[in-house]
Amino acid sequence: MQIADRSVEHVQASDVLVEAEAITKVIGSNGTSTTILDAVSFAVPRNSLFAINGPSGSGKSTLLNILTGIDRPTSGRVVFAGNEIGHMSENGLARWRGRTVGIVFQFFQLLPTLTARENVELALELGGAFPRRQRRERSLACLDEVGMADYADRLPSQLSGGQQQRVAIARALANDPPVLVADEPTGNLDSKSAHQVFDLLGSLTGRGKSVLYVTHDRELAARATSRVDLLDGRVIGLGAVGAGREAAS
């Protein structure tokens, strides 16, 4: 397999939401070092369903963490909606995430002591995109958007995996961020729930959102409108779905 060109020529600058430039991540201890990511570059178009695909150990979750400021690269930079996030402090990144990025985790990560609605309200409180008096209504609207309005007062322990992931998506949508980021969003779900959740994520692009997701599932990766393929920390495929495969073959 050829290592594809790492350029981003095929994406117009005005259509770019996220730019990753030569992202490298090296970790080391006791004199040995391991390169997790090696000069990864790509661009995520706006309103796209963008997949970061690769087998286990390819560095895709690390890459996603770097894109969201949860981790920092050894070198390279990330420009997110025109802002380089590398210079921000930890607290600055937290506030930035609250407003700009909605994160959906593989294991949902709902706060167990709060109900579905309160989990969404917590995101509103932290992000601050809506005034206090609007938060209750907004949280119910987000839950309704994901089909979970009837479960607003249930605790996470009272919900199935698929239902919890829907609430997590509602939480990610709470502050109306331009982009949602999901790390293996269906990895912990049965196939039926997985399809439902992925369909929901995919539908968000029609509402002006960009969705960035990590997956090792080829079928799910194939549903992306754009993707980057990683192997051993390097980009081996890049571009729009279909176009990337043609280039590689």
Partner: peptide, 16 residues
């Protein structure tokens, strides 16, 4: 600890 991580991931500063 995981809850703290989640809170920070969705926008909470260390002080909060």
């Amino acid at each position: 600890v995981p809850v703290m991580g989640t809170m920070k991931a969705i926008g909470a500063s260390g002080g909060r």
